[in-house]
Design a protein around this nucleic acid. Structure first.
Length: 162
DNA sequence: GCCAACGTTGGC
DNA sequence: GCCAACGTTGGC
């Protein structure tokens, strides 16, 4: 069981989009970075906790909680010539990009970067490291507890709902 | 719009 | 295998 922070531009897929999606689940399309892909392909398991982060927007920050809802499978957008995520060097026989499905758990009050940086227990959080650009980063057990319980005030009941 | 930081590409 | 050039990310 691992925890993750996953960045999404809300213009493309926001926490509200996830809440409105069929089965409140969306495939995490568009990752085109090998480190981020490897996290999804090699380390994620169904049930892993996800901090849903809004990036490249007016006020970036954690906007909700989600969970990993599938095992890894090829990102279909890589084969779609009309998609911005099309990858001419990939093929169904040898897919280059893998993803997982992510399911909605709950929204949280927006937890901004200054709020995260103000919390000493998050000083080593990967997403806060200087120069970090990875769209998927691991979150430690303690970081998960601090953010979901202390900063976001999510109840244990909400976190454990299936 | 700026720019620091980082990843990828491709010539050699 | 090195590394310069280039493209992208993403906060500000």
């Amino acid at each position: 069981m691992h925890y993750w922070l996953m960045k999404s531009e809300p213009d493309e897929a926001s926490i509200d989009d996830l809440a409105r999606a069929a089965n409140q689940t969306l495939p995490w399309t568009g990752v085109r970075n090998y480190q981020a892909r490897n996290f999804m392909r090699d380390q994620m398991a169904i049930g892993d906790g996800v901090l849903f982060y809004h990036s490249s927007c007016d006020v970036p920050g954690i906007a909700g909680v989600a969970r990993v809802a599938s095992t890894p499978y090829p990102d279909p957008t890589q084969f779609d010539a009309s998609s911005v995520y099309y990858d001419v060097k990939s093929s169904p026989a040898e897919p280059r990009w893998m993803l997982v499905d992510v399911s909605f758990v709950c929204k949280t009050p927006l937890i901004t970067l200054p709020m995260l940086r103000a919390e000493p227990r998050l000083a080593n959080m990967r997403v806060l490291a200087k120069g970090n650009r990875l769209s998927i980063t691991p979150v430690s057990d303690e970081e998960w507890d601090v953010i979901t319980t202390d900063l976001a005030g999510v109840s244990a009941r909400a976190l454990n709902k299936t």
